[in-house]
């Protein structure tokens, strides 16, 4: 089984439980570098997929919250190398500990600095299932895609509410793992009302896409998740979770509160 197949499987399992997959974003090493693996384990107990953010000095697609967490992680000396070694240690922990497939979310430059010759091997060895690279549009991704493909790793593509239908089709056919459908034009972290035209957009995207569709940007409440649930395969929560961590609150309680079926115990 290719590493990326674990992503689709995790989404299917959520579907079998009757709810969209819950995908959590955390910035690696935020809020505390030394607590990264503990946080990873806690989050893994409450969600289906984890996006681990590689901090970058210029996160241009992100709003104020994730800019802050990136900066705080960099100030603690978090690097891609360190993240991969932590993930490797995490994935070799006791098999009884909670698991959720991990994707790395990184701007392109830290990945280029590691080198596309080394990156796929190092990531695969660390148990990474795929990559999300927000500043790598499809037209520039050929080299990265073939490098990751060779190791069975996913490269997730994005679509937005203003992406033309033909392009949605093309991007979804070329996305592996899942398709990241942005709820709005803009950066991460704003609150989204989820108006009817956004639901129509998700319905249209899901019809076109051969891979599962996960909605992200601005998701912070169970009401939003419930409204989106019939139209998407997964929901991604990022800034809201980072804010919970900033406030020192319990991330697991927050993530469980987002579950559509939150009355039921969550399988891990």
């Amino acid at each position: 089984m290719a590493a990326r197949d674990s992503i689709g499987k995790a989404i299917e399992q959520a579907h079998a439980r009757g709810e969209p997959a819950l995908v959590a974003y955390i910035t690696a090493g935020f809020p505390k570098r030394e607590a990264f693996r503990d946080l990873l384990g806690a989050v893994a107990s409450a969600v289906d997929l984890i996006e681990v953010g590689v901090p970058f000095t210029d996160p241009m697609a992100d709003g104020a919250t994730i800019q802050r967490s990136n900066r705080a992680a960099l100030e603690q000396g978090v690097t891609l190398k360190w993240i991969l070694s932590e993930l490797k240690a995490f994935s070799s922990q006791a098999p009884s500990s909670p698991r959720a497939p991990v994707l790395l979310m990184s701007y392109l430059n830290p990945l280029l600095a590691c080198g596309l010759d080394r990156l796929p091997d190092d990531a695969a060895r660390a148990g990474v299932a795929g990559f999300i690279v927000p500043d790598l549009p499809y037209e520039e991704c050929a080299e990265m895609r073939s490098a990751l493909d060779a190791r069975g790793l996913a490269l997730v593509q994005f679509v937005t509410p203003v992406t033309p239908t033909d392009r949605v089709r093309m991007l979804s056919q070329n996305s592996t793992g899942f398709l990241y459908a942005v709820t709005m034009t803009g950066t991460t972290g704003k609150n989204v009302a989820v108006p009817p035209e956004v639901l129509e957009y998700f319905a249209r995207v899901r019809k076109l896409s051969p891979v599962p569709v996960c909605a992200g940007f601005g998701i912070r409440s169970r009401e939003q998740v419930e409204r989106l649930a019939p139209y998407v395969d997964g929901v991604i929560v990022g800034s809201a979770l980072v804010e919970v961590l900033e406030r020192g609150e319990d991330p697991v309680a927050f993530l469980r509160s987002l579950r559509v079926q939150s009355a039921q115990p969550v399988l891990s």
Binding site: M60, A61, L108, P134, D135, L136, P137, Y138, E139, E140, Q157, F158, V159, T160, V162, T163, P164, R167, L171, V182, T185, G186
Partner: peptide, 10 residues
């Protein structure tokens, strides 16, 4: 080249 998020492509 053109390394921009998909949100900027249009």
């Amino acid at each position: 080249g053109r390394y921009v998020p998909e949100t900027l492509v249009p």
